[in-house]
């Protein structure tokens, strides 16, 4: 059965790119353009993995991740953070809220897909 992935980023180019590529690789994809819609989508579609941009307006990816981890329905979801911020403290904060992986922008779409596959394979075991 195809895994479901949620992509949350306020940049339409990144959303579209990831949606295209992930669909091409056989995943079912949902997109969100800010924190609140990401949460709503996560609760509705219960994806296996969420790709979250940190710097989203209204509610950052970190807040979304934290909320997902606190909610028992979504606590087991895999989370991959995507961001332009590379400070050590941000990375620590990302993992601190329970992210499974952390990818910096500019990113390689192929590499991102590989990481997603790796996480999902790990979880499936």
């Amino acid at each position: 059965m195809a895994a479901t992935v949620l992509v949350a980023d306020d940049d339409p180019d990144i959303r579209d790119l990831l949606e295209f590529k992930l669909t091409h690789c056989g995943y079912k994809v949902h997109v969100a353009e800010d924190g609140p819609s990401a949460l709503a989508a996560a609760l509705e579609y219960k994806p296996d993995l969420a790709v979250l941009d940190i710097m989203m307006p209204v509610m950052s990816g970190l807040d979304v991740a934290r909320t997902l981890r606190e909610n028992h329905e979504t606590a087991a979801m895999s989370i991959l953070m995507l961001t332009a911020r590379a400070q050590e403290s941000d990375v620590a904060r990302g993992f601190g809220v329970g992210a499974d992986d952390y990818v910096l922008k500019p990113f390689s779409p192929r590499e991102l897909i590989s990481r997603i596959e790796a996480i999902l394979t790990r979880v499936a075991r």
Partner: peptide, 8 residues
């Protein structure tokens, strides 16, 4: 500024 690798 958003992608690198083959996409870039």
């Amino acid at each position: 500024d958003k992608v690198r690798g083959r996409a870039a």
